[in-house]
């Protein structure tokens, strides 16, 4: 399935069908990651329940040093 993550097209393996699985796919299951799915910021609970479909637009961001 092809989706757009952080403005880049990416092909996801068939077993990745939820946002939670997407985090695991990138090894980000134990870090604070903020996710926007098709324009909506997802809470942690929503991340667990949200399904991914082809063509979805996903942003994955995190906190970085700043002032």
């Amino acid at each position: 399935m092809e989706v757009i993550i952080n403005q880049q097209k990416r092909e996801l393996p068939n077993h990745v069908t939820t946002i939670e699985q997407l985090r695991e796919h990138f090894g980000l299951q134990n870090t604070v990651v903020m996710i926007e799915h098709n324009g909506k910021a997802l809470s942690a609970d929503e991340q667990n329940d949200t399904h991914i479909t082809a063509g979805d637009q996903i942003e994955m961001v995190r906190f970085v040093g700043g002032g």
Binding site: V32, M34, F63
Partner: peptide, 18 residues
């Protein structure tokens, strides 16, 4: 204070807040 930044999924470094 922190900023937000897109994660570079091809080069995920250490998480600053961790």
């Amino acid at each position: 204070t922190f900023a937000l930044s897109r994660i570079d999924l091809d080069n995920i470094g250490p998480d600053p807040i961790e």
